[in-house]
C-alpha cells in the first residue's frame, strides 16, 4: 500500500465518521433533556433535505435559501414531535417512548413516500464538483464542508453549553428537570429549544449526506444506526467519547472495507462492539445506569 492510498482511505473514513457524528449530535442533545432515544431523528433530517430539494424547482429559490428553509422545517417538525408526542409519553423507559419515536419515524417515511414518490433523486452536489488533488489524494469541497461543519457545530455547541446562561439551563435540565424548575429555569422552553436545535442539526447532517449518496425516503437509516451504535457504546449522556467513537467508526469501516472487502464490514464492526463491551471494566459500564 502506498502513502496516498492510506491518506485517501483516512480522509474518506474521516468524512464518513463526521457524518455519523453530525447525526449523533442531535441524538445526544435530545437524550440529555428528555432521556429519549429518538428513532425519528434521521427522518426529521430527511424532511429538511426533501423540503430544500423541492423548494428550489417549485419556487425558484436559490439553493442556500431553500436549504435554510429546509432546516427551519426540520426544527419545527422536531419541536412538534416533542410537543405532540414525546412529552405526552408518561413513562420514559417503559418502552412506550421507543414505540412513539418508531411510530413517528414510520409516519414521516410514509408521508414523504406519498408526497415525493418512492424515487431516488440527485441532490445538490454542494461543492462535490470542485475537485483538487493534494499529495496524490483526491478531495472535493464537499468533503471539506462536511469536516468543517462538524467542527463548527461542535465548537458552537461547546460554547453555548459551557459559556452561556442557556447552556447552564440545559445542563441543569439534563441533570434533573425538577430541580431545574425550582431554581427558576423554564424547563419547557429549554426542552423546546433543544428539540428544535436537534432537528435543525439533523437537517444539516441529512443535507450533507444527501449530497454524498442520493435522496429518497430511506437513505438516513444506515447512518442513524451507526450514530446509535457510537452513542450507546460511548454513552448517550456524554459528548466527547461518543463523538470520537462515531468518527472512529467511519475510519474503521473505511480501512476494513479496503483490506477485507465490503462484506467483512458487518462482522468486523459488530464483533468489535461485542468484544469491546465484553472486556470493558465494569466501572466504565456503570455510567449509563438508569436514573431514578
Amino acid at each position: 500500500m502506498t502513502l496516498d492510498t492510506a491518506l485517501q482511505l483516512t480522509i474518506g473514513g474521516l468524512v464518513s465518521g463526521s457524518l455519523y457524528g453530525l447525526v449523533l449530535i442531535g441524538i445526544l442533545l435530545i437524550y440529555r433533556v428528555s432521556r429519549v432515544v429518538n428513532f425519528a431523528h434521521g427522518q426529521i433530517g430527511m424532511v429538511a433535505a426533501m423540503c430544500a430539494f423541492f423548494l428550489v424547482p417549485h419556487f425558484g429559490l436559490p439553493i442556500a435559501v431553500a436549504l435554510g428553509l429546509g432546516l427551519a422545517v426540520a426544527a419545527l417538525v422536531s419541536y412538534l414531535v416533542d410537543i405532540l408526542v414525546i412529552s405526552r409519553v408518561t413513562k420514559i423507559g417503559s418502552g412506550f417512548d421507543l414505540i412513539a419515536t418508531l411510530g413517528v419515524m414510520m409516519f414521516l417515511t410514509a408521508i414523504v413516500e406519498l408526497v415525493a414518490s418512492p424515487k431516488s433523486f440527485k441532490f445538490f452536489s454542494l461543492g462535490a464538483q470542485i475537485e483538487f488533488t493534494f499529495l496524490g489524494v483526491y478531495f472535493n469541497a464537499n468533503d471539506l464542508t462536511v469536516i468543517l461543519t462538524l467542527a463548527v457545530v461542535l465548537g458552537l455547541l461547546a460554547l453555548v453549553l459551557n459559556k452561556t446562561g442557556l447552556g447552564l439551563s440545559i445542563r441543569a435540565v439534563a441533570i434533573s428537570p425538577e430541580i431545574a424548575r425550582t431554581t427558576g429555569v423554564n424547563v419547557q422552553a429549554v426542552r423546546a429549544l433543544v428539540w428544535a436545535a436537534g432537528g435543525a442539526i439533523a437537517g444539516v447532517a441529512a443535507i450533507l449526506i444527501a449530497s454524498k449518496v442520493t435522496l429518497n425516503a430511506f437513505y438516513m437509516t444506515p447512518f442513524l444506526v451507526k450514530a446509535f451504535v457510537a452513542g450507546i457504546v460511548g454513552g448517550l449522556d456524554r459528548f466527547v467519547r461518543p463523538m470520537a467513537i462515531a468518527v472512529g467508526l467511519g475510519l474503521l469501516e473505511s480501512w476494513v472495507v479496503y483490506w477485507l472487502g465490503a462484506d467483512a464490514r458487518i462482522p468486523a464492526v459488530f464483533l468489535l462492539i461485542i468484544v469491546v463491551l465484553g472486556v470493558l471494566p465494569s466501572k466504565y459500564l456503570q455510567d449509563l445506569e438508569q436514573r431514578p
Binding site: T5, S16, E253, V257, Y258, A262
Partner: peptide, 16 residues
Amino acid sequence: LRTEATTTDYLPIAQE
C-alpha cells in the same frame, strides 16, 4: 470484489 446492500461509503471499494 464483494459489497453489501447496506454499504454507504464506496470510496474504499473504488480505491481497491
